[in-house]
Every structure is written in C-alpha cells, then in structure tokens.
C-alpha cells in the first residue's frame, strides 16, 4: 500500500502521505500501554513506600545495582550502534552488537537473581512484607521484559546471520530498539524509585 500517486494536488493528505511507518506507530502505541502497565506497578510500590514505610529499604545494595544499571545502559548503546550499522549495510557488525546485547542482558538478569537471593538470605522475600511484595513483583516483571528482549535479540541475531536484514529492511531492528530502550528507561525509573529515593 505505498503512498498513492494521486492526481489530486490539493492539500488533503491521506494517511499514506503522513510519512509515518504504520508498524512503528503500532509499536509506539504498544509502548504507551506498557508505560501504563509499569505505571500501575510503580504507583503500587510508591504507595507502600510512602504510606507504610518500612526499614527494609536499608537492605538494598546500591553499588551492585548501579553496576547493573551500567550494564543495561551499555546494552542500549550496543543496540543503537547495531541499528546504525545495519543502516550502513553492515550485517556482520549488527550481529556483533546484537551478540553484545544478549550477553549484557544475561549478565543483568544474573545480577538481579544474585541480588534477589542475597535479599532473601536477609529475610526480605515476596511474602515477607508489603515492601517485599511490591519490590519483587515490580523488579520481576521488569526482569521478565528483559528476558523477552534477550530472546527477541537472539532471534534477530540468527536472522541477521541469515542475511535477513539490510539497509532497506531494517524495520525489525528499529522495533527491537524501541522496545529495548523502553525497557532500559523503565529500569532507570525503577533504579531511582527503589534505590535512590
């Protein structure tokens, strides 16, 4: 359905001529609903953090999670370099950057699991307290989104090796980029809301 070569020259513009790629628009609408999904979880966490504060906040180790934040930032950086590479028609470089993203994603997830286990050792679990419930639910759902991102990156990685992407057909990588950067932004908000405030 390419844009219509319409004889009508007046300024009435059809959807096709707005210059919006409909797949990307659909992705952004999905991101809007994800913002509200995480919004609900963050509102729950903040509600308990403000209305019924507990001392368990001190158990959290900011430096370890800070490193995790660096890792996720790095993976975002890799993804955007990958997208830039494919636009220069360099699929090998894209594959390389996707590989880095997968590795950093896995490191981030293992960092989270390590942190969960160390907190559980100190008695903070999903069912131990309101703070525990809301903290673990929120971070676990974010972790789930990172896992989905890692699986999506692996699929893209395989597809790139098979020559699935070129400078003109890079929409798949753009979509993955939007999703991955969104998950990274959510982590930045979580990092601030849980550990810093």
């Amino acid at each position: 359905m390419g844009s219509q070569t319409s004889a009508l020259k007046d300024h009435f513009r059809a959807g096709g001529e707005l210059g919006i790629n409909h797949i990307k628009l659909g992705m952004w609408f999905f991101i809007a609903s994800e913002v509200m999904f995480f919004g609900g979880l963050i509102a729950t966490f903040l509600n308990f953090k403000i209305n019924s504060p507990t001392l368990e906040g001190e158990l959290l180790d900011v430096t370890l999670v800070g490193i995790n934040t660096f890792i996720l930032l790095g993976s975002s950086f890799a993804v955007v370099l990958g997208l830039d590479a494919i636009r220069q028609d360099k699929p090998r470089q894209l594959a390389f950057y996707l590989g880095i993203t997968i590795v950093l994603g896995v490191i981030f997830l293992s960092g989270q699991v390590f942190e969960f286990r160390s907190l559980a050792a100190e008695g903070l679990t999903l069912t131990s307290s309101v703070f525990g419930s809301s903290f673990f639910t929120m971070t676990s759902f974010h972790g789930l989104h990172v896992l989905i991102g890692v699986l999506w990156a692996s699929r893209n990685f395989i597809k790139t090796l098979r020559g699935g992407y070129s400078s003109s057909t890079s929409i798949g990588i753009e979509l993955f980029g939007i999703y991955w950067h969104f998950v990274d932004i959510v982590w930045i908000i979580l990092f601030t809301v849980i550990y810093l405030i």
Binding site: S6, F12, A14, G15, G16, I20, H22, L25
Partner: peptide, 23 residues
C-alpha cells in the same frame, strides 16, 4: 488492547486520499 492498537494505527495511517481527519 490489541484491537485498540490496530484501530488507532489503521485510522492514522491508512485513510484514503482526500480523507482528512475532518472528513
């Protein structure tokens, strides 16, 4: 939710020539 994403994208990007938002 899936339906809403579909409707919004279709309305914004797939209107026929001449079908502006005010029509």
């Amino acid at each position: 939710l899936m339906g809403a994403i579909n409707f919004m994208t279709t309305i914004v990007t797939m209107r026929a020539p001449g079908m502006t938002f005010w029509r």
